[in-house]
Amino acid sequence: MHPDGVGTRGAVTGWVLPGVYAPQDDTALLAEALREEGPAPGARVLDVGTGSGALALAAARHGAEVTAVDVSRRAVWTARLNARLTGLPVRIRRGNLFGPVADGTYDLILANPPYVPAPGGGRAPHGRSRAWDAGLDGRLLVDRICRDAPGLLRPGGVLLLVHSALSGPGRTLELLRAAELEAAVVRRRWIEFGPVLRSREGWLRRSGLLTAADDKEELVVFRAERAR
């Protein structure tokens, strides 16, 4: 999840309670991949780290059977409110990643996890930053998704995952392919640095995650399919 959106209500975001991740460029990029995927009516879809529920609701508009999960109570309340306001049937559960749904299997899994590299060693993110900070390499949750999502995919099922190119896209492809998924990058988009990246730009350059020439951030969407 990218750190720099602050929306409270809009055509795409719906209602966003204070402290809940507001949909922005990464959400829009993943929504494009979702539209291209076009889940069939009745397809079982999981949106992990749902935030305001924007992607879960987008999947429900296709007629999919959608489950959404988030660790944040406020995010769960927000997603439930938006589902009620739109009249779309989405099952929303609170928990850590796949914990609440570990006994299920899905045709499509959507993931826009925290992925922003953060100084501070092993300190766990807290407060609002929990929606975007993801350890020194930005892979605190990305690695867990790459490890655990494949086991929840039905034959022919697809994982759509978005994160920053700062967070090691090559590693993501390596892990997904090691799990015997057919994985590729299907979307890329360059965006301006927002306030959080600007505030840690010096650290990112000293860490080698940004070069002297880098003045934008690249977002990347991965599509990984389980063999039928």
Rank of each mutant, 00 (worst) to 15 (best):
R130H: 10
A124L: 15
Y21T: 01
K216F: 10
L30M: 11
G51F: 05
A83W: 04
A124F: 12
D133N: 13
E218Q: 15
G49E: 04
T67I: 14
A75C: 01
R228A: 15
R226H: 13
L152D: 01
D70P: 01
V48M: 09
R226F: 13
L17V: 01
L173G: 05
L210D: 02
R84E: 11
V116A: 11
E65T: 08
D103E: 15
D107H: 15
V162H: 06
L97P: 01
R139C: 02
L166I: 08
D148H: 12
R226P: 07
L152P: 01
R147H: 14
L88C: 04
I191A: 06
G157H: 03
R200M: 13
L17P: 01
R144F: 04
P117Y: 08
I191M: 10
G156D: 09
R177C: 00
A183N: 07
L152T: 01
G42M: 06
R84G: 00
R189S: 13
A31I: 08
R226W: 13
P23D: 03
A68P: 07
V71E: 09
S164D: 04
D4G: 14
R73S: 10
A28T: 00
R139K: 08
G10F: 08
V158C: 14
D133E: 15
V221W: 05
L108F: 06
R223H: 03
A111W: 03
L29I: 02
G53R: 09
G202H: 08
R35C: 02
V90C: 06
V220I: 13
H62S: 09
L55Q: 03
D143H: 14
Q24D: 11
R144T: 13
D47S: 03
E180Q: 11
R93E: 10
P125L: 11
